[in-house]
Design a protein around this nucleic acid. Structure first.
Lengths: 342, 342
DNA sequence: CTGTTAGCGCTTTCAA
DNA sequence: TTGAAAGCGCTAACAG
């Protein structure tokens, strides 16, 4: 038993007006008598009138809602991006609807369909590690629904994107390890499906090449970003005949998990093994030793993504030219990678 | 220039049917010819038809969307609650719209209005530390919109609530400190506006009383939950003529911040000061020494809140009897509170 | 300045 | 089994 909702018709009736006039008064249309307007506004607040945005959206074919799909939000990375996006969207009069795909491709597809059905005006998405088929996103393009990819993007999609310079960030991180005397630098890489993993891996490889360091495939381990699964590759590295003296991890949660494992096994950081992460997760300043990491402008990523959406939302989808924004990273050197033996 | 959206009318026209029939075919109404249905379904997928939920919601006066308002989501607490809620809502065919009030009362009000305008079917909210006026929430009740409060609830609102036994949790935590030999136990309390702060404070006080410990007002410091502001009260405690030998913090982020400050000043934990937090934040297992904390069933809190919403959403708002669910906490004793001198 | 009308996309009687 | 018509709440021409 839903209660009756107050509509403009109720107000119109009580004031002996037409609903158009009420609508005008409520929306601040210029051509409306001051008295009438005042009466309408008063009755509206008195009756607790709340405009039905559903109806408005229907008539406008525009919901002023933006959908965001992220793989997860237990780690602080995506929440921070969302905060950034919400900031600029809120200022632009938009609502934001956040879904998490939970790193599942099928959930990502379901989320996409649900948001489209809910007539969001556009989507910001960071794909799952499983996503290799982009039909659900191409669908958006066909429909002319603005799409901005961020952080985890795909080369296959010709849409606007926001990323950080993953290659460069990784390169600097590994370069730093080399320059501080590390000679066997392992890389805990992400799923090969993700461009972000490949870019960071390439940065790692090129840094080694640039400084004439040998590349040892045994030191490159891919894993699936599930924290609990980090133990296997880390242990694997430690059991190697020539174990690594440094570890560059795809991201901070991974680096932190690795540090925990190393510490639990009595491996000294950074004396025996240096560790470097990626993201500047707040925890990197809490764990001991503090984690050296590649900082990325997380909130800004969300802001830029939101802005890229706004840039195209009222454009002719045919005319809009996708844009890729590459944000700068910054290597933050902390205790976990202090000079070998220094 | 929005592209034309495919509607049932398009399908109807192409198939020489009425839109009613198409609607029936699409929604799986029994009384529709098998052939017709097949044709409709085929054309629908072929045209990438997506049902307009906005229109559906309008006609049904039901959006199958639940709004959630949380004060923040940088710390993992609220995200975990949201995950729990999304789980059960998704299973029930609902979408979820998350807003963060950013600990600002006026934002909370704005969020509430926005979600109501967007015709969410109900709201789950955890109030800000500033919220002392509940008009915006009473408004929901007048409208017959289901509201469930969680974690940060108010005694003033006669609605369903989900909380943990904050009093009990705090009592056990402080009891533990007393039993392990601590004699000057400080409490870093939350804002007095929050019931959660008062309940935890009362647990602290009653534990002291129960074990015949003196209560020293100097050891009870309220602060505003802004991490950066933790330094003042913590320093204050250390400058006391008789500094505390234990610290019970309102929550884990606070406890962790306090530990960081203590450690930076060379105070040994737990030897000189024991620390206990509340929530079992994942970071409590990363910081050293590992933080003793009162664990609460976070995801479950979201699940229960969602369920309480579902329980009332299709009820007559007059007939529904609000229910308060108190979840159990569990004291997890870790290194930060090991026996004094032991 | 205000009222009438049409329509956004869909479901749902009521008839046929 | 299908169609016609009404209506969800609102805005936007078009008259007046």
């Amino acid at each position: 038993m839903k209660k009756h909702q107050i509509t403009i018709v109720d107000i119109a009736r009580q004031l002996n007006l037409s609903k158009s006039t009420v609508s005008r008064a409520l929306t601040g249309h210029p051509n409306v008598n001051k008295e009438t307007k005042k009466a309408v506004l008063e009755l509206a607040t008195q009756l607790d009138y709340q405009r039905n945005m559903l109806a408005l959206s229907l008539v406008r074919s525009k919901s002023y809602t933006l959908g965001i799909i992220v793989p997860e939000f237990v780690n602080p990375f995506f929440p921070s991006v969302i905060i950034g996006a919400q900031g600029v969207m809120g200022a632009a009069g938009y609502n934001v609807m956040v879904c998490q795909s939970n790193e599942s491709y099928s959930t990502e597809v379901t989320n996409t369909k649900a948001l489209v059905s809910g007539r969001v005006d556009g989507l910001l998405v960071s794909i799952t590690k499983e996503t290799t088929d982009f039909e659900h996103l191409k669908f958006l393009q066909r429909k002319g629904i603005p799409l901005v990819l961020f952080n985890r993007v795909s080369e296959e999609m010709a849409v606007s994107k926001v990323v950080v310079d993953d290659y460069e960030g990784a390169f600097r991180a590994v370069e730093h390890l080399i320059l501080t005397g590390r000679r066997r630098i392992a890389h805990l890489a992400g799923p090969e499906t993700l461009l972000i993993s490949r870019n960071r891996l390439n940065g790692y490889l090129d840094a080694l090449r640039t400084y004439n360091q040998p590349i040892d495939d045994q030191l490159i381990l891919h894993y699936d970003l599930t924290r609990e699964h980090a133990r296997v590759p880390v242990n694997h590295l430690l059991y190697l005949p020539h174990p690594p003296d440094a570890l560059f991890a795809i991201n901070d949660p991974t680096a932190i998990e690795a540090m925990l494992i190393l510490k639990s096994r009595g491996v000294r950081i950074p004396e025996e093994v240096a560790v470097v992460g990626f993201s500047d997760d707040p925890v990197s300043l809490i764990i001991e030793p503090n984690l050296t990491t590649v900082a990325q402008p997380v909130t800004e990523m969300g802001q830029v993504a939101a802005q890229l959406f706004l840039d195209q939302v009222d454009e002719d989808p045919g005319a809009y030219v996708p844009e890729t924004r590459v944000l700068k990273t910054k290597l933050l050197i902390r205790e976990s990678s202090l000079k070998k033996g220094g």
